[in-house]
Nucleic acid binder design. Structure first.
Lengths: 192, 192
DNA sequence: CAGAAACGATACCGTCTCGTATCGTTACAG
DNA sequence: CTGTAACGATACGAGACGGTATCGTTTCTG
């Protein structure tokens, strides 16, 4: 079983998360959380000193982690695994409703910007690990900017998720990979 | 000169837009607009029946249009022009602060979703016009989904603008084009 | 099992916000 | 030049919201 402190904590977090998904970040209101969770307002303020603190906590808690591909895989295989992890991440429950909120709030709220920063760093690290294999295999120049490559690689998937311009499915994922690889070969062919 | 109705209208719009840029969509408040524009509240409600109506109007007014490339240009040249127009659009004053707001609000507000839809349609139309040249030149299969191609093409630039993962400059634009073209050639070479 | 920590219920305050109403004043069009 | 439409100023009501305070009750912990 869990202790009472844990129970009330998660009850509030779940309520706040639900409100965020249903009505956006402004829908996370103390009274709303109280009504939805059944937890008393005084108790909420015992766990979080302010509303903003709770909001940040919700974002920090719901932010999905990008799964790292098997280290034994080669460059291309790892890249294919990665894009599917990326897809899984984007289609994680509710994430498509949270991500826009995060991208907006980070502009005006430092705490949220930090959460997004940490998430981005973690993703970049995973990506760089895959890139390194590409360098080893002579597919990628070691001087290429990883951030730029990440943007080129993941941009389409992010756009699809945010704008709904295209369905987030395997077809898009495959095209993303082949486009990324195709561009590499067009610039620096596989065999010298 | 301009009529008085026009003057008050634009005064309110400018104030509301400034508030949007500075504090996000929730910062657009009637009292705030009144204070900032110097226009009386009663006058504001003479032009817009509700706050949401004003907000939608602001978004609709600030949404930039994607410039269409010269019709005489060939596929590749048109594509290069297009990506630079796209870049110009993203770096338009304040747009990087408005776009996230739009992507969030469209999830919960139909009016905003319609504004975004119209903008997307206009962009797609411009892009399809360029695509057509690619089809004529045998670079692109006529059965390829334009929406998917647009996503693959513009995704990186959108991501760079939204997340700040990479600077929005000519380097990114050029890489976007070469990646897009490189992928085409890898699948369907230029000369049969 | 006893003391302490956490909790629930409730009331309350100050502020913000939307929207309405009133009325004297100003600009504009015919 | 005159009537009318638009405007400014202001007050007001009602509700939402953040945050504080109080006090009796429950649950954990040692």
């Amino acid at each position: 079983m869990s202790t009472r402190v844990e129970r009330t904590h998660t009850a509030v977090m779940e309520a706040a998360t639900a409100l965020l998904l249903e009505g956006g970040p402004t829908a996370i209101t103390i009274d709303g959380v109280v009504a939805r969770s059944g937890v008393a307002k005084s108790t909420v303020y015992r766990h979080w000193t302010t509303r903003d603190e709770l909001v940040v906590d919700v974002f920090d808690h719901i932010a999905p982690k990008l799964e790292a591909p098997d280290p034994t895989l080669g460059f291309e295989d790892a890249l294919r695994r990665l894009v599917h992890s990326m897809l899984a991440m984007m289609t994680a429950p509710g994430w498509l409703r949270v991500l826009p909120a995060m991208l907006l709030l980070k502009l005006h709220q430092h705490d949220i910007a930090e959460v997004e920063q940490r998430m981005h760093d973690a993703q970049l690290k995973v990506f760089q690990d895959v890139l390194q294999r590409g360098v080893s295999e002579g597919r990628i120049g070691a001087d290429d900017d990883p951030e730029l490559l990440l943007t080129l690689f993941v941009g389409p998937i992010l756009m699809a998720g945010l704008t709904g311009s295209t369905e987030l499915n395997g077809a898009l994922a495959d095209r993303s990979v082949s486009q990324f690889l195709g561009a590499l070969d067009a610039v620096a062919p596989t065999a010298p």
